[in-house]
Design a protein around this nucleic acid. Sequence first.
DNA 1: TCTTGAGCCTGTAGTCGCTACAGCCTCTAC
DNA 2: GTAGAGGCTGTAGCGACTACAGGCTCAAGA
Lengths: 138, 138
Amino acid sequence: MCPVKPHEIESGLTRGALARATGCNIETIRYYEKIGLLSDPPRTQAGYRIYGQAHAGRLRFILRARALGFTIDDIRGLLGLDDGAVPGCAEVKARTERHLVDVRDKISRLQRIEAVLAQTAAKCSGEDVPHCPVLEAL
Amino acid sequence: MCPVKPHEIESGLTRGALARATGCNIETIRYYEKIGLLSDPPRTQAGYRIYGQAHAGRLRFILRARALGFTIDDIRGLLGLDDGAVPGCAEVKARTERHLVDVRDKISRLQRIEAVLAQTAAKCSGEDVPHCPVLEAL
DNA sequence: TCTTGAGCCTGTAGTCGCTACAGCCTCTAC
DNA sequence: GTAGAGGCTGTAGCGACTACAGGCTCAAGA
């Protein structure tokens, strides 16, 4: 991968262009590179990163997975970056279902919290009484 | 508050005892002290912290509020540590309701995630086909 | 009285997933 | 030639803890 001059770039994207194309924060791209989620792209002679379509595709995958609440480690697993082998379909399904269980867990924990908060707030008239029922409930 | 010797402690709790009494991690107590959520307790001559019932009560309040998802800053507000005045009942109710809105927001975001994950996982037969529908959906 | 081990003290670093900034260099357009 | 946008690097900060190293103190048993 010999360095390319910027005017020689045809289908490549700079970091800013990739950020705009994917809606990703520009610094996040560098972060994903640093932690090995994105591979180091080729550089121009001046050191500018040049991303190809493969990078853009992988970044979009990462962003969608993050938006669905997968952790960075989960994503590493889905991409086969932990043991070197891209997981098979059954394995991917299993990982997704494990994550689904976690999400449902979080939801039910939040629903319990919601119920307590709603009950507690309902106890309060909103008037300035000496003993606040909310503070006492807490 | 002159230093007390350990054998003179009557109703006081050491940090470990307070941790056991409240179920709080011992280091968390020191952390809450550092950030000003708990006031500095009196010390023995050797420098050991001695907590009274007031400290235990406040810590329990903090732990319950944290368990309900209030942030440290929220709690600072509920305790009147931000502007020096303990908020009135109406104010507490308003803060609780704002937090309730946040919690409901989180729940609905997670429910959207849950739906997508469940759909995606359902597309997958679990067999090792060449194009994994889960990975493609992501 | 001595020793042992639990438990306290302090400061500091690590966790996760970014985000922001300082101080520099390079490119493009006028 | 120059201005300004945008790239580069390393580092620090967020929130809410948690963990550890290296030292000190205390209580109980031999």
